[in-house]
Design a protein around this nucleic acid. Structure first.
Length: 508
RNA sequence: GGCCCGAUCGUCUAACGGUUAGGACACAGGAUUUUCAUUCCUGCAAUCGGGGUUCGAUUCCCCGUCGGGCUGCCA
């Protein structure tokens, strides 16, 4: 059994979006699962769309997600170079091979001429395609003959090389997720293989590289399915054994039509990119899962389940568990609508799995940002004591501050709604009594405070809400939060009494 | 328009011809709690339509409908 080798081959035209990460993930999982290699290749053959910083972004995003290549651009390996712009000589050589064997031809039609033909066809309600039906009427070596072709070539006229598709063949191609895909070669057009700037197109570079790099399985997005026949024909033209193919379903917009695009994020209030991205040209910023506080394992888990399932009812997986469970045969065929709510749910699940020490590391910067300065040793200790009280309500690290800021800073305002609801005319007098009672409470522990105060409340027939709710307002400024008695213990007697005083002063 | 691919609750999905069509997210209700959140319980909710094949179709075949992708010297 040959060793599995898969690749992820993004184009550095901007930040990798979550669909791209999922493709990388599936490749990675498949490789790991079968003890194979996962290779990163950069497909930068379009010089006009190259975006500086994109390659670094791709690598950083994969690293963050835990999807580490075994080989490839920036990771070493003996089948490089792994950046296509450094392989142009290789492609030219293989293109020549195709020309020599009559499987490809020179074409001199300019982009303007082709555009005019497209326009013209469109005006008739048709679509122009360059292929067996009209290639003899166009400016190429097939129509022009060897003499004229040589003349043009020697005159230095710009040209592209096109693949000559033989019509009239029924192709049946096996796809690992879709089964059989069928197409008639008469429907195919003569795709450009080599551009006039000497760069290969995706189709050519892809086949040559996959072959040379020993790729056994091509796992990519469904948008490539239509060019699958072309690719198979290309392998055939070179006389190479094609790899196995698997085309993944696309990720669709949460609402509306079409596949997920970068614009959907701001509309729906969720990130589309793994990492924050600042467009070097426009300066525009796009949110990233990492910066939003998502755990990489939650992000990866969510992505894995979007279009794949383990066949049982498990939903929460670590990356290692995914490696053990993943396989291509359980990848779904149809596109999956992305659900931002479910992403949050995965995050909650994974966050709650973290040990206290790890959560502490994550919330420390959150508290420091809230305070606007580094935590003191005492505050760090305070954080340690507060965490158990609020941890189960944390989804993102940033939630810590919304649930715990009042442990660090006394409330500087009291939520009007809360006050209106629970701070009645009789409350101030009641709070004064509570204050006096609490001042006598010893020792100052949660259980003792609870015990004493409960008895005090019951003995006076007061009702817990009547006393505890305004007390909560006095201590935190609002009506929500963790156990009041545990809070009081952590706050300390002095601070508790001081906050009651302050509330009495502010609210009357 | 042409070509290719797809179709189970609102969403992600399970059920490889025989199930009361299962789970999860979301939503609704309830329990717990001083409150909010968590947690737990309950509920709501689906096989796109029409033909076949079969004793029997969510499952297999055909047609339609809808959805998606591609249709560039982009990837």
């Amino acid at each position: 059994m040959e060793k599995v080798r898969v690749r992820f081959a993004p184009s550095p035209t901007g930040p990798l979006h979550m669909g791209g990460v999922r493709t990388a993930l599936y490749n990675y999982l498949f490789a790991r699962r079968h003890g194979g290699d996962f290779i990163l290749r950069i497909e930068d053959t379009d010089r006009t769309r190259y975006v500086p910083g994109a390659v670094d972004y791709i690598r950083e995003a994969l690293e963050w997600a835990g999807i580490r290549p075994d080989e490839g651009y920036g990771y070493g390996g003996d089948r490089g170079p792994y950046r296509q712009s450094e392989r142009t000589d290789i492609y030219r050589q293989y293109v020549q091979q195709l020309i020599d064997s009559g499987k490809a031809y020179y074409a001199f039609d300019t982009p303007e001429e082709l555009e005019a033909l497209r326009q013209e066809a469109a005006s008739r309600g048709e679509v122009f395609t360059y292929g067996h039906r009209n290639r003899m009427q166009l400016q190429n070596s097939l129509a022009l003959g060897p003499e004229e072709t040589r003349r043009r070539l020697e005159a230095g006229m710009p040209y592209v090389v096109r693949f000559k598709v033989e019509p009239g063949r029924r192709l049946r191609i096996r796809d690992l997720v879709r089964g059989e895909v069928e197409v008639d070669t008469s429907e195919l057009d003569d795709k450009v293989l080599l551009k006039s700037d000497g760069m290969p197109t995706y189709h050519l570079a892809n086949i040559v590289d996959d072959h040379l790099m020993g790729i056994t399985h091509v796992i990519r997005g469904e948008e490539w399915l239509p060019s699958l026949p072309l690719h198979v024909l290309l392998y055939e033209a070179f006389g190479w054994e094609p790899p196995r193919f698997a085309h993944l379903p696309l990720i669709l917009k949460p609402k509306g039509k079409g596949k997920l695009s970068k614009r959907d994020g701001e509309l729906g209030g969720f990130p589309v990119f793994p990492l924050k991205w600042k467009d070097p040209e426009t300066g525009r910023e796009w949110a990233g899962y990492r910066e939003e506080g998502y755990l990489p394992q939650a992000f990866v888990n969510m992505l894995a389940l979007l279009g794949w399932n383990p066949g049982d009812e498990r939903e929460i997986f670590t990356l290692d568990e995914l490696v053990e469970t993943f396989d291509l045969d359980r990848v779904h065929k149809s596109g999956a609508r992305f659900d931002p709510d479910k992403a949050v749910w995965f995050q909650h699940r994974h966050f709650q799995r973290l040990p206290d020490e790890q959560i502490l590391e994550l919330i420390r910067p959150v508290a420091e940002e809230g305070l606007g300065r580094p935590l003191t040793e005492a505050e760090l200790e305070l954080t340690r004591r507060v965490l158990p009280l609020v941890r189960e309500r944390l989804i993102f690290p940033r939630d810590y501050w919304t649930w715990a800021s009042y442990f660090y800073i006394p409330p500087h305002e009291y939520a009007p709604k809360a006050v209106k609801k629970q701070w009645k005319t009789a409350t101030p007098e009641l709070m004064r009594q509570v204050r006096a009672f609490l001042a006598e409470t010893e020792p100052w522990t949660a259980s003792r405070i609870k015990e004493n105060l409960s008895e005090w409340i019951t003995s006076r027939n007061l009702g817990f809400g009547k006393v505890l709710q305004p007390l909560r307002i006095a201590l935190t400024g609002d009506l929500k939060g963790p156990d009041l008695f545990a809070m009081m213990e952590i706050l300390g007697k002095d601070e508790t009494l001081a906050r009651i005083d302050r509330a009495l002063e502010a609210l009357g």
